[in-house]
């Protein structure tokens, strides 16, 4: 019972958050390399951005400074802009080539 209360009262080391961020980033990067569907590749990029946001916010907590939150806020804005343009590009690619396989969209001309 004493162990349980100790576990419940324990604090999380900051490095755990940073390691989680690293793990998520690497999973995203690996997905970026092994997946072939354009949309999934795009989602892996979003995963990497999320991982970076987590480390920004963790550092913000460490420095007791709100700037890290502002950075992640800007990352989200850029991600939104990127998603709008990127998905429009994906739609256009699909309209012209009828495929979402990233390896088949390798030629510059039709």
């Amino acid at each position: 019972m004493a162990d349980l209360t100790q576990v419940l009262a324990a604090e999380v080391p900051l490095s755990w958050y940073l390691i989680l961020s690293v793990i998520l980033f690497v999973i995203g990067a690996a997905g970026f390399l092994i997946r072939r569907n354009i949309i999934t590749v795009f989602m892996c990029i979003e995963l990497m951005l999320n991982a970076v946001n987590l480390s920004f916010i963790a550092f913000s907590h460490m420095l007791k400074n709100v700037d890290g939150h502002i950075y992640s806020f800007f990352v989200m804005v850029v991600a939104a802009a990127e998603a709008a343009v990127g998905l429009a590009i994906i739609l256009t690619v699909f309209k012209n080539r009828a495929t979402l396989e990233i390896d088949e969209v390798s030629s510059l001309k039709l």
Binding site: M43, I57, S60, H69, F73, M76, A80, L87
Partner: peptide, 28 residues
């Protein structure tokens, strides 16, 4: 984010990321 004290960012994460950007992905 909430555990790290980022109340605002946690809400924005759900509203913007999960609620707007991912809806676009699912839609496409």
């Amino acid at each position: 984010y909430l555990l790290l004290g980022g109340e605002f960012l946690a809400a924005v994460q759900l509203i913007v990321y999960a609620g707007a950007i991912m809806v676009l992905f699912v839609f496409v």
